[in-house]
């Protein structure tokens, strides 16, 4: 009898330790979700990227001001395939502009409004020059035909499960704002409405680091008279003035004084594209 009591007590103690461990693990998970900005106090909300339409709407989480904050980290290139099956990579750090990454799913009811809004960014009143990219999971976790049906071609749509992992996306919809000047995320989180997302992006833009200047000036495209004038300036700077003999070639040797480009076989002048748009 005594042995039975001892064994029972031991079993109860072991089970108690196990339950305590499980509760602690659960608390760690909830804390991690809280830090990611989702599932705050709502364990019923799915986090697998396919929230049920009947689930509670996502809780809005502020995007920024967090420029350069270590915990948000660097923004890796988004690489995957397009809904048509082509390959696409978006480097979010190759300009001084903001890039808004919208992680959406084709089967997520909350995402419907964002699919439409993000593909008409002009109507969202985002900061000037903000680049919008939609990222879904890869073809292994999404239905390409459904993604293709939602894509209008106005903004890049990349299917990449790897990007979801890189950006630690807990579910859709989820948004990440990247500052191309610093190459870092300046905000991330969820928004329940499009105006709320626009406001969060504008606020993050306003709160960007003072030193986060553009990497380079926006290029200016010249055309018409301005292009002609610019060409004249370059020629004059090179010492070529109106009437210069080099402007009136009579033989191929005049055009290629140092020999024809190596890429072009004899008889093929200049190596110009044969087929171009």
């Amino acid at each position: 009898m005594v042995a039975l009591v001892v064994v029972s007590t031991f079993v109860v103690l072991v089970l108690g330790v196990l339950v305590a461990g499980l509760l602690r693990s659960h608390a760690d998970i909830l804390r991690s979700l809280h830090e990611l900005g989702v599932g705050v106090g709502d364990p019923a909300t799915a986090v697998d990227g396919h929230r049920d339409s009947a689930a509670a709407p996502p809780a809005p989480v502020s995007m920024g001001p967090t420029a350069g904050t270590p915990q948000l980290g660097d923004a890796p290139t988004v690489a995957g395939v397009t809904p048509a099956g082509d390959a696409r990579a978006i480097a979010v750090t190759n300009s001084g502009r903001l890039t808004l990454l919208g992680f959406l799913s084709s089967g997520c009811a909350t995402c419907v409004a964002f699919w439409e809004a993000l593909q008409a960014p002009g109507a969202m009143d985002l900061p000037d020059g903000t680049r919008v990219v939609i990222v879904t999971k890869g073809p292994d976790r999404e239905v390409p035909a459904e993604v293709r049906a939602r894509a209008t071609g106005r903004v890049p749509v990349v299917m990449s499960t790897e990007a979801w992992l890189d950006y630690q996306v807990p579910g859709s919809p989820f948004f990440v704002l990247v500052d191309g000047a610093t190459g870092r995320k300046v905000g991330q989180g969820v928004a329940s409405t499009v105006p709320q997302l626009s406001e969060l992006v504008r606020r993050a833009e306003h709160d960007r680091e003072p030193g986060a200047t553009r990497r380079r000036p926006e290029p200016v495209s010249l055309d018409g008279p301005a292009r002609e004038a610019a060409a004249d300036d370059v020629l004059r700077a090179a010492g070529i003035h109106p009437g210069d003999p080099s402007l009136y070639p009579s033989t191929l040797d005049d055009v290629f004084p140092f020999g024809q480009p190596a890429a072009a076989p004899p008889g093929v002048g200049g190596g110009l594209p044969v087929r171009a748009d």
């Binding site: 290139t77 690489a79 082509d86 390959a87 990579a89």
Partner: peptide
């Protein structure tokens, strides 16, 4: 990042982005 399609694979150097399409 590495992208590939249609028999072309590119291991993109830092700062590059790209697309491979038909």
């Amino acid at each position: 990042a590495t992208i590939g399609a249609h028999g072309i694979v590119a291991r993109l150097p830092a700062g590059f982005e790209g697309r491979i399409f038909v």
